[in-house]
Design a protein around this nucleic acid. Sequence first.
DNA 1: AACCGTGATGTAACCGGTTACATCAAAGAC
DNA 2: GTCTTTGATGTAACCGGTTACATCACGGTT
Lengths: 337, 337
Amino acid sequence: MTTIRELARRSGVSVATVSRVLNTPEVVSPDTRERVLRIAAETGYMRNESARTLATKKSNLIGLVWDTDHRQPGWRHPFFQEILVALKSALSSHGLHLLMLANPSDADDGMRDQHIRAVRRHNLDGVVLIDNGSHDPALLALAEDAVPCVSIDLAVAGPGTTYVTSDNEGGARAAARHLIERGHRRIATIAGPQRTAPGQQRLTGFRAELDANGIALPEEYVVGGDFYFDSGFTCMQRLLALPDPPTAVFAAGDAMAVGALRAAAAGGLRIPEDVALVGFDDIDLAALVQPALTTVAQDKPGFGTAAADALLAMLAGDPAPAAPIILPTHLVVRGTT
Amino acid sequence: MTTIRELARRSGVSVATVSRVLNTPEVVSPDTRERVLRIAAETGYMRNESARTLATKKSNLIGLVWDTDHRQPGWRHPFFQEILVALKSALSSHGLHLLMLANPSDADDGMRDQHIRAVRRHNLDGVVLIDNGSHDPALLALAEDAVPCVSIDLAVAGPGTTYVTSDNEGGARAAARHLIERGHRRIATIAGPQRTAPGQQRLTGFRAELDANGIALPEEYVVGGDFYFDSGFTCMQRLLALPDPPTAVFAAGDAMAVGALRAAAAGGLRIPEDVALVGFDDIDLAALVQPALTTVAQDKPGFGTAAADALLAMLAGDPAPAAPIILPTHLVVRGTT
DNA sequence: AACCGTGATGTAACCGGTTACATCAAAGAC
DNA sequence: GTCTTTGATGTAACCGGTTACATCACGGTT
């Protein structure tokens, strides 16, 4: 392994000069710079990141905490994939790498703060949290730390902390409005868990839009799911079993919406003729079921790039934005309405 | 930040002794050990990983190269999610972290070897490659490196290199056998790309089983897809348009199988009455379409744990296994056969 | 001619660990 | 009683960078 001392020896300059060529090339004379760079290229020099991190306390590493859910297959967050692609791509174009941190929920109790410790131990420059719905207090503790932190769909507060989420309320209103415009008056919802921010906000938006249109929402028209397929199925069954069943349903997540779709089909109902259905998320599956699901689309890559941008700004010294970053949603009309 | 020098000062021993307490506690006397540990706990000492890496050249970091495909939504590899969960969980229980490396395909040309360089720059202890189907030569170059390397569904060779894959051939034979047992004789296949190992092996297995049963496979019964939904759709249309269309189809991937399902439905055919269908992978979607897809299931978490185990063994000094690690598959019979 | 500012470079301390080697006291061998 | 072994600990070099400060040559002032 070539080191800067070796480069210095070969090019007849001091280690400091080599270091300057690599970090602040403008302060070194053109000819030495050129000579050192040439020799560096010839010898295939690569900087040792550990040594640099040790000296500067900056690692160019961003921690990623994304807590998986062991009770369910796949991820909690519907867009983990797309978020990760966009996030990584945006970060790596700035020379930052992602380090996956320990999963708080599968650590034993003594290890609950593993990811916080990792921030210190590896001199991480920042952290990205992706909501898992579990609201682990250890996660929130991260936000209180000094390190820049961006979370996705998880409302955290603290200095150097911000979060990005979709316009859940607006999206839910759009879904409700769409159903109203289609002439529905008996509209129910399969809500998400009310301890999650998206779950709450989507229910709030849904309520608000019905309210604004003077449409009543009986208590039994609000049933609570957990964002997964199975809960959508059983919730829909409950709704259809009501004495006065709804003619339209807004499911606060596509997986639940697909579950609802199956329940309706199993009950012999035609969609959208007998009951209309709108989902939320626009996961890949939404376009593949039949009939294809009308849903509120979130800007999937937008999560990743917005998180990266916010992080980069904070790394550049900007203060954390006071307000969360809210991404627009849009209604995608398909076959279920 | 507490350092070991600080700990040494506070507990009245030398830095070497503190380091020993942390790394080889058995060589230090019980009372000093206990005292140092107590003071370390009191002061909230955390080891600086960069310094340790610098000194030992071991980072406890594993690189993850998983190349995304920008032409398609989602990942190339159908199980990226589950693999990652299992992999990370297995690795982190051994104190190893995953570092996501630059994506070779979205790097500009000067950066094609970014991920190889990262191995050196960050002193990575090993690398996991997840196949993207692109067969980037820069990926393969990694395997020639000295660092322990495990790849998934990508046949690479080199010292310190092994790979894990499913029993694609066996799985494909099982799929074919199942269709034969159902009485089918005109059986076609929507194959995967033949430049990928799984694509090849599944076609080989399919052919072998038909052959073993004395069933002819006309050339027009083999159509090539790209593992994605759309190709499954168009391939199925081609098959159904044949003068003598098949009564059963084996699709080498579930996404293609679902595409085929839609094409059959669009063509007014009933499944499985008019045409039977078997997929491969057992992605989540397989159970959610209607009729639910009969398919060859792969051991999704098995990929992650097998890769982790192989890597850990190599880190412990074992030579790389000469033979690839082959995970068993099993047929899941659902509604399409 | 003495002085100063400036730009390029060198010297050496420092970041926080690890570890080869030295030291030393106590126990055991003869 | 001396010698050797053993176990516990200390000293200091080293890993490969960064950077504050010092040095020095040179052109411009006065």
